[in-house]
């Protein structure tokens, strides 16, 4: 099965409070208040002088540090923003060159917005499995650096922070085992926030049901139930999205929300960032299933069940 051999994250040194960032973005007091009191934001990392490469490369280099770079057969850069003004067509190849992975087949995956990371793990693992070389690895690199004000405030409800993460993927390695992956896309919402008000309302009504369906199916395919899941790792757009999406309080209590006030929303990197935090804080119970979930504008719902290995990070002794 697909395994995560290493996952690493990175943030620039500069941190700002939500009030400081709101002021930089020209928000009024009522909007600023909304982000702190309603959406649960507190602070985030944000450095306007940071390049996209400065953001994504440190985590990628850390993920690569334990392996022979020649074993990396695929480099997949996944980005949430997919307009050409946000990510140039040469970005993935530049990352390959800067990492010295000249022999890795390199491309980018996108157009699931913040859900793309889970698909990228699945694509990476599937390519390795099809190739059949147990020593081969794939590096999944995530991170976006929106340059324009409008892209730093997503859907009126998220302030995008700076954060990136990378995962080293293997087939049948010794790391965290991916036990299932389920994804559903509802293309009638492909216009995202450009959808009509009626479609946006329809999306809000559909979202809770479909998210839980996907989660249940992922658990079922992994041979467990949602009750068995020790923790659900979701993106960090804000707290209200998840309150609106996961109506069941018992299920919502399994979600890891601690990084929303720490880092705010780092787009497609959130799920891996949160995985790293849980590992560093020794909050995984080894060999008990956990779950990634993601919702991407446009509109994709994904869930992936995994079992942390004993070296992923167990409880504090």
């Amino acid at each position: 099965m697909i395994t995560l051999e290493a996952v690493e994250s990175f943030f620039p040194d500069r941190t700002v409070t939500v009030e400081e960032r709101a002021a930089e973005l020209g928000l009024n007091p009522a909007q600023t208040h909304m982000f702190r009191r309603i959406h649960g934001l507190d602070r985030m990392h944000y450095d306007p002088d940071l390049s996209l490469y400065d953001l994504v490369l440190p985590a990628a280099r850390k993920a690569l540090s334990q392996v022979d770079p020649r074993s990396v057969r695929y480099l997949i850069y996944c980005h949430a923003l997919h307009g050409g003004r946000s990510v140039g067509p040469e970005t993935a190849q530049d990352i390959k060159r800067l990492l010295g992975l000249e022999n890795a087949t390199t491309f980018a995956l996108t157009q699931q917005n913040c859900a793309i990371t889970l698909s990228a793990i699945d694509v990476a693992g599937t390519l390795l499995r099809a190739d059949g070389d147990p020593e081969a690895r794939a590096l999944v690199v995530t991170g976006d650096k929106p340059r324009h004000r409008a892209a730093q405030l997503v859907m009126n409800t998220c302030v995008v922070g700076d954060g990136s993460a990378s995962a080293l993927v293997a087939w049948n390695g010794s790391g965290t085992a991916v036990r299932s992956f389920v994804t559903r896309t509802r293309g009638e919402f492909s216009d995202g926030m450009m959808s009509s008000p009626a479609l946006i309302r329809a999306e809000s009504e559909m979202r809770p049901r479909l998210m839980v369906e996907v989660m249940r199916e992922a658990a079922d395919r992994a041979g467990c139930t949602l009750d068995d899941i020790q923790v659900v790792i979701a993106p960090n757009p804000n707290t209200t999205l998840w309150q609106d999406t996961i109506k069941d309080e018992a299920l919502r209590s399994k979600f890891f929300f601690d990084n929303i006030p720490r880092y705010s929303h780092c787009l497609a990197s959130d799920v891996l960032i949160n995985y790293v935090t849980l590992g560093e804080e020794k909050r995984f119970e080894p060999d008990r299933p956990a779950m990634f979930v993601a919702i991407g504008v446009g509109m994709t719902f994904s869930a992936m069940v995994f079992t942390p290995s004993s070296n992923t990070g167990g409880p504090r002794s």
């Binding site: 923003l81 997919h82 307009g83 003004r85 929106p146 324009h148 409008a150 892209a151 405030l153 997503v154």
Partner: peptide, 13 residues
């Protein structure tokens, strides 16, 4: 899209 080019699946607050 926005005159500053910031038009990636977002609208301004």
């Amino acid at each position: 899209g926005a005159p500053d080019g910031g038009d990636d699946a977002v609208v301004e607050v």
